[in-house]
Design a protein around this nucleic acid. Structure first.
Length: 272
DNA sequence: AGCGGAACCTGTCGGC
DNA sequence: TGCCGACAGGTTCCGC
């Protein structure tokens, strides 16, 4: 479910709520979500650790622990972290329960159980993080960098932008929106984009992610903030999920196609 | 290197 | 009402 703006929103809220808190006890109710550790090893590795900070890398959440260790989480499609008071009842979709020293509980909920949690000694030692590419809101994400990478690949630009080892954090919703705003057909081979098109992709990526972040992300069905509230960027989506609706630029009907087994939404008239 | 397809899971919605 | 297939903010693995 969540892409960069949603994961960043969650990371900020978790950082605010958890910094300085100690994890008293952990209950793993769905062992299949863990990578590497047994439930016992995972629970033992976290009990008594203090959360120093929570940050985002790509679509991963990284909890830095004191005295040492990191907890890494990927929410995949339906994962969410929710804070609740100790008196509330724990819902069945809570797959991992973190009991905090302050009496609150942090729930990892995940209907589809596709998410993954694991422990590592350091962020550098967490293999999936090492494979991530450029952060699209970082200074290194420049038109020049984009042009150089795209020039080497015949992969459709939508699929190229979603490859986490190239650009880390973009997913199905935002890439459809980026291609639409940049007026580039998502099926275009990455190496066919000219300088102006690369520059437009670069510019609108920053604009869209920044605006989505200001909206606390996009809620279509599952995504919730840590306080269980929704994001609001869905009100600004221009093509995602809008098959048949008039294009906001030229009024032609928005089309849905499938790329890489995922839905892509586009305007067949004004995206070239 | 790169691409397509299946697998991992569960829930919901639309059509017949 | 009920069943069946399609679809869902993602990633990884396998075979060609």
């Amino acid at each position: 479910m969540p892409e960069l703006p949603e994961v960043e929103t969650i990371a900020r809220e978790l950082n605010q709520a958890l910094s300085g808190q100690t994890i008293r006890k952990v209950q793993v109710r769905r062992p299949g979500l863990l990578e590497g550790d047994s439930p016992q090893g995972f629970e033992a590795g976290l009990a008594g650790k203090q959360v120093d900070r929570v940050a985002r890398r790509g679509k991963y959440l990284v909890f830095t622990l004191v005295p040492q260790g990191v907890l890494v989480a990927h929410l995949r499609m339906t994962g969410k972290f929710v804070l609740q008071g100790g008196a509330e009842s724990i819902p069945p979709s809570a797959r991992v329960v973190f009991l905090l020293s302050g009496g609150e509980r942090l729930l990892y909920q995940d209907t589809r159980c596709l998410g993954r949690l694991f422990l590592a000694r350091t962020e550098e030692e967490a293999p999936p993080l090492a494979r991530l590419g450029m952060e699209p809101l970082s200074g290194g994400f420049t038109p020049g960098w984009l042009a150089q990478g795209a020039a080497k690949s015949r992969t459709p630009i939508k699929v190229w932008l979603m490859d986490q080892s190239r650009v880390a954090g973009l997913g199905n919703i935002y890439v459809s929106e980026i291609c639409f705003s940049a007026r580039v057909a998502p099926t275009r081979p990455a190496n066919s984009l000219n300088r102006g098109e690369i520059q437009r992709i670069h510019r609108v990526t920053g604009e869209i992610l920044t605006q989505a972040l200001a909206c606390n992300g996009t809620t279509i069905s599952d995504y919730r903030k840590v306080d269980d509230k929704t994001g609001t960027f869905q009100n600004f989506l221009r093509v995602y999920g809008k098959k048949g609706a008039p294009c906001p630029r030229c009024a032609a009907p928005i089309q849905r196609i499938v790329q890489h087994q995922r839905s892509t939404f586009l305007c067949p008239v004004c995206q070239k």
